[in-house]
Design a binder for these strands. Structure first.
Length: 107
DNA sequence: GGTCTGACTAAAT
DNA sequence: GATTTAGCCAGAC
């Protein structure tokens, strides 16, 4: 993938996340060599306005830390559950099992 | 143009 | 082992 502005990069990577899978800010930051996971979340916040499945990105604990930024606080969880991910109390159940790393898709 | 602020994370306490 | 601290870097003011 080409290095663009980090916004576009975050968008692209996020769009690559398969349905029913999730990844972390850190994984994306690592993949993009940002060195600043916070920016990923920040970019994702802007990504909500675009056609980006930002709900598939959670913090390293598998917690839906960004749910409050969605239209409704429960929206993120609903989207994940629609994709077959079990979410309990804003935390993904068996997070490790659903975890997806960008490099995994790259090959 | 310096300062503040994040949907975070790892290390230190 | 839970809480706190520092580092991360791009935008907004």
């Amino acid at each position: 993938m080409k290095k663009q502005s980090f916004w576009a990069d975050v968008y692209d990577v996020t769009k690559l996340i398969p349905a029913g899978r999730v990844t972390t800010y850190g994984a994306i930051a690592e993949f993009l060599q940002l060195g600043a996971p916070r920016m990923v979340g920040w970019a994702l916040n802007a990504a909500l306005k675009a056609d980006i499945p930002a709900h598939r990105v959670v913090n390293r604990k598998g917690e839906l830390s960004g749910r409050l930024h969605f239209a409704t606080p429960t929206r993120m969880q609903e989207l994940l559950e629609m994709e077959g991910i079990v979410v309990k109390d804003a935390v993904i159940v068996d997070f490790k099992r659903h975890f997806w790393h960008p490099l995994q898709e790259m090959g």
